Simulated scan of single mutants.
Amino acid sequence: MNCYEIIDPRFNSLIDPVAFLEKLHGENRWAEGPVWFADLRCLIWSDIPNDRMLKWEEETGAVSVFRAGVSNPNGSTRDREGRLVTCEQGGRRVVRTEHDGHVTVLADSAHGARLNSPNDVVVKSDGSIWFTDPNYGIISDYVGRKAAQEQETCNVYRIDPDSGDVTVVADDFDMPNGLAFSPDESLLYIADSGWLTDRSAPHHIRAFEVDGDKLGTSRVLAEIAPGIPDGFRVDTAGNLWVSAWDGVHCLTPSGELIGKILVPEVVANVTFGGARNNRLFITATTGVYSVFLNTTGLRYPS
């Protein structure tokens, strides 16, 4: 079945006309945070309300519980040493799984107050870790643990690779969500999904100029509809593959919508993987899907 909506002819060069959308697994309550392990040939993702992370093995297609009782995990990635970095939405912290399996807390507070509920995370080439902190995980007990908000705003943070210091790099978001660097890391794209809980709030992606360990001026790159932008990834040509309520939207580096991968469930996040890094893995409500593309993802640590 053709799963594509061609909006601009440029989209044709990024897709394979005979590739199709595959459903790899169902039975999630809210699938999120896919991360690819090329060395292990597996995909790991979060099932937030069920408080677990699952693993799909490429060679066999087998699905198993990777970890349970992990404080409602959301977005994940890998650092430059191949270690898993995860946003624990319910635990209100960002953690790293070491090679021996033990967990290190990287961030759980800022300015003397607990974080809200870390949502998504990306690692820059210098080893710094950048993450978003909306309040989704503390406004109900479904995808987190209902609690008072201690931070005045919902911020974007940077963890210094040497000192471990946690600093605010952006504080003017309603609900900061997915984030990803451009191929040359001169830009950091950040989604604002405030519209989900406030229909007067944004549902767009902003592009920030990156100035070392700080963010400079920003512009709205694109508004995402229907629904909100959640997690997204960037390919080697700089195109953005963005989650939306009707599938995955493909945006050019200038923010033009040129095509969609149509998915029968609301999409939460994506990541590139597979043997040639040309397979887009999609977490969408109850299901995990994939499709082979005619482009390759950036070689994120994941």
Rank of each mutant, 00 (worst) to 15 (best):
D39C: 10
A147Q: 11
D100L: 08
R67N: 04
L187R: 15
S71T: 00
G297L: 07
G61I: 05
R158Y: 07
A222H: 05
V123H: 06
L240R: 01
D8G: 07
V156S: 07
E32A: 12
D235M: 08
A107V: 03
D160H: 15
Q89N: 13
S193I: 12
G112D: 10
E58G: 00
E27G: 09
V166L: 05
A222G: 01
E32C: 13
L106R: 03
V121A: 01
V65L: 04
I190Q: 05
T77C: 15
E152N: 11
T167M: 08
T153L: 09
T153S: 11
L298E: 12
T271V: 14
S302L: 13
A237W: 01
V169G: 12
R67A: 15
R114P: 10
P253H: 12
D108T: 02
P301V: 05
V94Y: 07
A148P: 00
F37C: 11
P161L: 10
V168S: 06
T252H: 02
V169M: 07
N72T: 05
P226W: 00
G297P: 00
D141E: 12
I261A: 02
D171F: 03
K55L: 14
I224T: 06
A107Y: 09
L54K: 13
T252P: 05
L221K: 03
P183N: 03
S76N: 12
L215T: 01
V156Q: 03
N294S: 15
V95E: 10
S125Y: 02
V63C: 14
S76G: 04
V70W: 13
S290D: 12
A225K: 15
D126Y: 06
T285P: 06
R276I: 09
G216K: 08
Q89A: 00
W56H: 10
Y300A: 06
G90I: 07
I138S: 02
L84R: 09
S46C: 14
A148W: 00
L293D: 04
A191V: 08
L251N: 01
I258Q: 07
G216D: 10
A244V: 12
T167I: 05
Y136C: 03
D198W: 04
R96C: 14
G90K: 05
A19E: 14
N119A: 07
L106P: 01
T271L: 08
V266L: 10
H204Q: 09
L43R: 11
L115T: 07
A31M: 11
R114S: 12
G212L: 05
D39I: 11
R219P: 00
V270A: 03
V166G: 03
N294T: 08
F173E: 02
V95W: 02
R83A: 12
G212Q: 04
M53H: 09
P118K: 09
K214N: 12
R158S: 05
R276Y: 12
V63K: 04
G255S: 06
E152Q: 13
M53I: 02
P176C: 03
L43N: 07
G127I: 03
R206M: 08
S254F: 02
R83M: 10
D108Q: 14
H204K: 08
